[in-house]
Amino acid sequence: MGLPDDPELRPVLAGLFLSMYLVTVLGNLIIILAVSSDSHLHTPMYFFLSNLSLVDIGFTSTTVPRTIVNIQTHSRVIAYASCLTQMSFSIFFACMEDMLLAVMAYDRFVAICHPLHYPVIMNPRLCGFLVLVSVFLSLLISQVHNLIALQFSCFKDIKISNFFCDPSQLLTLACSDTFVNNNVVMNFFAAVFGFLPISGIFFSYYKIVSSILRVPSSSGKYKAFSTCSSHLAVVCLFYGAVLGVYLGSSVSSPRKSVVASVMYTVVTPMLNPFIYSLRNSDIRSALRRLHSRIVKYLCLIHPFCYVG
């Protein structure tokens, strides 16, 4: 029930959600294609980046398509099983993004603080293992929340003041006798698996900043910082949306909560490809090479095409 029911706003909302969704999917697909097709980007940093782009596509696809359908069909109803499924996937992809940002921070820490040992430490086996651990932990958290929700015998209200089955709102609607114990379990998992990635990011950047400050030349400091500037911008955007906006609005009006959820689930995944493409020279070079290959391929199959 979070979106306005004004008939004049429905086309605007549908167009806005559709445009943001298409930009998100297209931008992240371009990042994945650029990384996979360019041998210069076959490094741990861009391997994690391509996984982050894949997670952003899944995160947005969990909520936005259903929202567009609801707006177009003038329906605000979702089945109980579909609601739990949407909640489970949203928790999974949110945790995956959280874990991957921590893994990418560790990658930058090794690259800057231990550059000579970087190829040995960040080997393909460790990179794959870190991604698999992130998937396993995210799946564990999402299924714990799902199993707890399945134990609820009734709900105090069946209206969700958001545009999707927001876990923080859905689980507070339960009137089950075991809600207090389940709430303790959920808060424990949220604290542990939320605190650990944030702690890892802060520790990594503490070591990174300490190493950069010991570099004698200003050009060396700038070069070292530029290797992690894109990741730092994404971290600030993600946690700024979650902590600064989402948690701040959770105790405010429902309308502000919806705006915060849009920032968290739609805007942040949409902006991530732009941050990496605009602030990363390797990505820009790979995109230019990808564009050149596409143009040459089109010219091979089109007799009237000419490449200057």
Rank of each mutant, 00 (worst) to 15 (best):
L16R: 09
G194L: 07
F193S: 01
A224Q: 08
F136I: 15
S176A: 05
L278W: 04
F189E: 00
T60K: 00
V245Q: 05
L49R: 07
S36V: 05
S253W: 08
T60E: 07
N187A: 13
K207G: 04
A14T: 07
D177E: 15
I68T: 06
Q151K: 06
L173P: 04
R255C: 10
G308N: 08
M99A: 10
A102M: 15
G240Y: 02
I78F: 03
V262K: 02
D157V: 01
C154S: 15
K159N: 10
S37I: 07
F92M: 09
F163A: 08
R76K: 12
S261C: 11
F93P: 03
T172N: 01
L140A: 09
S285N: 10
T227P: 02
V295S: 04
V25P: 00
S217T: 12
F136V: 14
P216W: 10
I57L: 08
L147T: 10
G308H: 03
G194F: 03
P65N: 03
Q151T: 13
P216N: 09
L33G: 04
F188W: 05
G194H: 02
S261H: 04
V35Q: 06
R288S: 04
F152L: 00
N272W: 05
S204Y: 09
V64D: 02
D177C: 11
F238D: 00
L16T: 15
L196V: 15
L16K: 08
S39Q: 11
I141E: 14
L84S: 12
L278F: 12
L237A: 11
P303A: 00
F129Q: 12
T63I: 11
S249Y: 13
V209M: 15
R214Y: 14
K159Y: 14
I31D: 03
P115H: 05
N162P: 05
S161M: 14
L170S: 07
E97D: 10
S61Q: 11
L173T: 10
L126H: 06
R108E: 13
C113E: 01
V133F: 04
H231Q: 13
L171P: 01
P303N: 00
V245A: 08
M186V: 03
I212R: 09
F274W: 08
L298A: 00
R289L: 10
T60M: 06
